[in-house]
Amino acid sequence: MKGIKTVAKYLSVFAVISFFASPMYWVLICSFKPTPELLSLKPTFVPHSFTLEHYRRLFQQVDFLRYYYNSFLVASSTALITALAATFAAYSVYRCRYPGRRFMFRLFLVSYVFPKILVLIPLYILFARIGILDSPLALVAAHVTLTAPFSVWILRAFFESVPKEVEEAALVDGATRVQIIFRIFIPLAAPGVAAVGINAFLMSWSEYLFASTLVISDQFKTLPVGMSFFLQQYAIEWGIMMAGSVLIALPPIIGFAIAGKYFIQGLTAGSVK
């Protein structure tokens, strides 16, 4: 009886893992298959041979490095600005007291239910008027809006875990409030700040709607826009697409490996009391 239960348990776990992991495994191995094997009508579930030709051709045929650089620039700027702005705002909302504080908190919370498309048209017109349309700056400005308000919410659990007594002790010792924030508070809440930064990086790295409308010229295009163009071709170069997918997915996965634990901590602490 106990044996059957154990088998059932591991079967269910295996089913869940393979449901979510097998599509990703498939893309990974396909990116290393030579073209004849890749397009064979009898797919191989364990690759018979290994090649890097798709990766080589990706860099030859697509301006991949430029898109990569653009995406990296936009996503890291977004992450940095989001982390700073959200940390300050969260400190203000959770640790200071002033009229309108509750309203502020609600405003940030509501702002992530805005339809992106509602913001897009006015922002497009606004950016065109002030002359920053078609620049990485426009994209960063739009992406911070998508990420920062929600980040204030993620930070809540981390900020509440810093005891008020620590701040009080520092104040007694003659430290200023600004010193307290930078020397004591941010280091103690660092996992939360990291979680927020990673989340912002992921969102910005992946974002397509703003990236495809606020940026027009090829030299500023980000990865999602650059690659999606090839998805629309009549004859899709599948090998190149597979290799591109692996390389686009890599930075978010690395980022998640580094700070994913904190991200999950922030995500769950925000929703589960």
Partner: peptide
């Protein structure tokens, strides 16, 4: 397990 969510939309 959250990996599918981490993947960029274009991927």
């Amino acid at each position: 397990i959250i990996l599918p969510w981490v993947l960029p939309t274009v991927v």
